[in-house]
Simulated scan of single mutants.
Amino acid sequence: MAGGAQDRGMEISENAALVVVDVQQGFEEEAYWGPRNNPGADRNIAALIDAWQSSGRPVVFVRHDSAEPGSPLRAGYPGNGFKSYVEERRGKGTGPELSVAKSVNSAFYGAPDLDSWLREGGVRQIVVAGIQTNMCAETTARMGGNLGYEVFFALDATYTFDTEGPWGWTLGADELARATAVSLHGGGFARVVRSAELVAAVG
């Protein structure tokens, strides 16, 4: 899918916003989440943040404040904080920056209001990266598409975990990521691309 987007060319506007979803320390707790995929995701997320900040484009840092008492992402627990490489980069860009806190899947249902902030800045393109691929990252991308934004989904700058569903059905993290990519790209919600394509496009 990413190749198809590349074939059509990639034009990233000067004010395209990078939305970094839930890159928090609590996702390092493997005993809670189980096996993950894409060990290179954190490196790719960092590269996207660096590219956006150095080009003066807007960056949005989203944090999930879980309402579940045992969640590693609950407020007041160390896992709620951003991973160190994200925390170190906050406030370092030359462009606009926003921090959003949410307790549901979509970054568009948080505070302050992401949609209002983007529209006030004239932003029409967003790039989504972060955790989890098929949960908050995908939901944010879907809603962004519904709201009329041109959405780029940096698949290799996301990761997820093996998950059990109904009737004992289980899907591995790679399968879930592939399903997200096909659903978003094939369904017209977003263009699924590689992070290196985005870095090159803004460089």
Rank of each mutant, 00 (worst) to 15 (best):
P39H: 10
R43H: 07
R57F: 03
V127L: 14
W33N: 03
R142G: 03
E11A: 13
D162E: 12
G81E: 14
E88Q: 12
T160D: 05
N44H: 14
A46Y: 08
L114M: 08
Y85D: 05
A107W: 04
F153V: 08
C136N: 06
E97K: 00
F27Y: 12
F189I: 14
A41L: 09
V123E: 13
F61Y: 14
V182G: 06
A107R: 01
W117S: 02
H185V: 14
L155R: 15
D113R: 11
N37M: 09
F161S: 05
E150D: 14
N37R: 13
N37A: 12
T140W: 00
A41E: 00
A46D: 12
Q125S: 12
A129Q: 05
W167S: 15
L147N: 08
P39Y: 07
L118E: 11
A177E: 13
W33T: 01
A111I: 05
V123M: 12
W33Y: 07
V59Y: 06
V192K: 14
A179D: 12
P96A: 15
L18D: 02
G26I: 01
E197T: 13
P166V: 14
G148P: 05
Y77F: 06
L18A: 04
A2M: 14
P72S: 09
G168P: 03
Q53I: 07
E150R: 12
R89V: 06
P78I: 02
H185C: 10
T163W: 00
E97G: 06
Y149N: 04
Y77S: 11
V192T: 15
A101S: 08
E164S: 14
V151C: 04
A181N: 07
G186H: 07
G9H: 11
G4R: 15
D42Y: 05
L48N: 03
L147P: 02
A47F: 06
K83A: 10
A2K: 15
N146Q: 11
E28C: 09
P166M: 09
F152E: 01
A51T: 07
R74W: 00
V60T: 08
F61E: 00
S13F: 08
A154F: 02
E138F: 00
H185E: 12
L98F: 05
V127F: 05
D7N: 12
A200H: 08
R90T: 10
G26P: 04
R90I: 15
P72I: 02
R178Y: 13
R74P: 00
S54V: 13
V193Q: 10
R178N: 14
A107L: 04
Q125W: 09
R142E: 04
P39N: 09
S66K: 10
E88K: 08
G203T: 15
A201I: 08
E175A: 15
D7F: 01
L18T: 04
S195L: 04
C136V: 02
V86N: 00
T139F: 03
A2G: 15
T139K: 02
T158M: 03
S183W: 05
R43L: 09
V127N: 04
A16G: 04
S195C: 09
Q24C: 01
G56W: 02
